[in-house]
Design a binder for these strands. Sequence first.
DNA 1: GTCTATATACGGATAGAC
DNA 2: GTCTATCCGTATATAGAC
Lengths: 206, 206
Amino acid sequence: MSILKRKKEEESTEQKIITAARKLFTQKGFDAVKTRDIAEEAGINLALLNYYFRSKEKLFEIIMGESLETFFLGFSNIVNDEKTTYTKKIEQIVSNYIDMLLKSPDTPLFVMNQVRANPKRIEAKKIFMNSYFMKQLQAGIKTGEIAPMNVVNLMLNIVSLSIFPFIGRPIFQAGEGSITDEQFIELMMERKKMIPKWIEATLKVK
Amino acid sequence: MSILKRKKEEESTEQKIITAARKLFTQKGFDAVKTRDIAEEAGINLALLNYYFRSKEKLFEIIMGESLETFFLGFSNIVNDEKTTYTKKIEQIVSNYIDMLLKSPDTPLFVMNQVRANPKRIEAKKIFMNSYFMKQLQAGIKTGEIAPMNVVNLMLNIVSLSIFPFIGRPIFQAGEGSITDEQFIELMMERKKMIPKWIEATLKVK
DNA sequence: GTCTATATACGGATAGAC
DNA sequence: GTCTATCCGTATATAGAC
């Protein structure tokens, strides 16, 4: 049996624990998850969890770090690219978030909860306010191409339209006669196309 | 001393516990809150909590019920009023949510977490799909006054723009050079005026 | 109704055999 | 590296005095 084959079939114990922890922590948050649950989900023994990662907290920090990265890294790269127009950047931000969230739908609620519980240095606003994107928008307002508006509100609009549906998803999908997972994905694909157009329209509103 | 005066000065013990529980549960969620914290916050003894509300869970259910009501009740009333135009309804939904959230900013995150952890019969989608508002929108699409679009996406846009800023607030306000509470409120007041206009603009997008 | 003291269970972490 | 058994602090809940 080749080494590659083994790697695919037999995830390392360490990796199995990480995978289980990611699933449970992002779904339920730190306090609601028991280390015993993680061990069971990973198919290993509780003692092994402490053998690999000294404590529940250490393990949590690893998962949190991953999530913050997925949540902010792509954004930061897009928004500082000096070669793209602001219109293109809007498309990229929306597309980036929707693609990411279709893969990791629990990330935003997880991150929001954690940031509120433990307000660390996130500096999302700083990243945005100092970005090249920001300069392009202000230039657009100066030339009159964009109606005068608070750029923070513009940014809020872009992320709200992209992210909120994933946060509210449990509500739309609760109860009978709700949309299926396939319908939800379809809806999000339509949003990926439409949000940039909707945002464009708001740029003309006085 | 009049009865009214007494009521104002001396909140009943039961009420003190509810108030403390509301504050802590909405801020941190069920698992992160200890009954001892609630007792301390309420300025009473731990045993009293169990004397009035048999258990932590019973107490939580009361708070959760309150929150669900504030979150959905106003919405349901607005959306089924047969005397207002759809334009007016959009204004009212936005205004209603922003006013409510300025008073209870922790509600959405609390409700979203809870619904995901324990998907009960919320039927938000049903309320919307069967509403008079819905009929008005479809009529508008038929006459061409509104560009053809998925009405679920329209609804998502209205609530996303109104609610998300409150969910993401910890992120914008984390770190240095962030906006103050006053600036945040000002921003939301501007959104209250502008969101209906922005939504109007999206209704013309093909 | 309100308190102090306590029963009981649970969850995180470790000891020690294999 | 992986397991079983167990320790120990903490959290919910109750008993019983006042």
